[in-house]
Design a protein around this nucleic acid. Sequence first.
DNA 1: AACGACTCTTGATAAATGTCAATGATTTTG
DNA 2: CAAAATCATTGACATTTATCAAGAGTCGTT
Lengths: 189, 189
Amino acid sequence: MLDVLQEHIIKRLGKVPERFEEVAKAFEPLRPKRGTYLLREAEVCKHVYFIVEGCLQVFVIDKNGNESTRELYTEEQWVTDIFGFKNQQASEEYIKCVEPCKLLRIHYDAFQYFSAEIPAFAQIYQQILELSYSNTVYRVNTMTSLNALDRIKWLIENKPQLMTRLSNKLIASYLGISPETMTRLKGKL
Amino acid sequence: MLDVLQEHIIKRLGKVPERFEEVAKAFEPLRPKRGTYLLREAEVCKHVYFIVEGCLQVFVIDKNGNESTRELYTEEQWVTDIFGFKNQQASEEYIKCVEPCKLLRIHYDAFQYFSAEIPAFAQIYQQILELSYSNTVYRVNTMTSLNALDRIKWLIENKPQLMTRLSNKLIASYLGISPETMTRLKGKL
DNA sequence: AACGACTCTTGATAAATGTCAATGATTTTG
DNA sequence: CAAAATCATTGACATTTATCAAGAGTCGTT
């Protein structure tokens, strides 16, 4: 799986990174099956995950016990509970595999060490941070400025793969609507 | 105004930053009045703004012409269109003063230069990035997992200053509800 | 192939929220 | 300081979306 990571990093950095071998050793491969929780509310997130294959759902549970999906991540994306990870504090989110996955994860201690020691590592981390932040800003705007039907159209336009590979129910949660409304609105497309 | 900036940075870094004088010179003071646009959709965002005093609204305009407020920023916060700024691409957002403001702004070129040249600058930028990202993640979860009444309660709990210093209409836009609904739900508190 | 669990769809109904219009209050500005 | 503009509130009504329930379909496991 490390080859996928290396390719990903070369794409970002435009070259083979310094001390890649050393960094690569710190990544632990993982093959969790569908339904596995990588993080639960109130736990402290100890890792950053890189998705080689599969799909991760990050969500919170509302007062009625319903999942509210903040984000769905797939191949070549980086996932963590950013606030909890950086401050090593209890998470408010859950992270769950919604497909069988191939993941690489790096521990907080190694992450801290490489951030301080290897400039290229810090540089890539910053790029990922900027991209993640941009995406989340965009998500706020999408969720607050579009109605349910337009959010569905948006997803079809912008993330068609998600639409086809995930369940109606999960997509509905991602779009902030009930599965029933999702079914009905799809008929109006 | 630079004293406020210096204090802010000392708080973040835990010490007086290296080459502060040099960096400080790159910050241009600005005193826009209420209603001034700092950025419009389709423009390229050339600056990062630091708020010494006042309040900035960042929003998009939906298909019905209504403002949908992504964020409201006040004293000692950093504001830009992150995606457009980093890539020097057209913005999808507007940035507007909703109070008379005292601002400091740094130009893209200076920002790039200091990021590369001064480690402490890059370090503080990264901290701000992490905090901004965390806040935005939190905002997605708040907006998608709470109903209108609970979002109002959330605001009163977590950002009471905003509630009192801004108009009903603006707060409603921030919470993603109509001004009329806002008025009615406030009666139910 | 059969079982169980889960999912999708559809209908009926309810709840939440938006829209439009009118009025009075407040703020801004010449 | 007075006119003009904007804002807050309220009522009536419309629209959107959620909820609950039932049946049919799908999937994975044994």
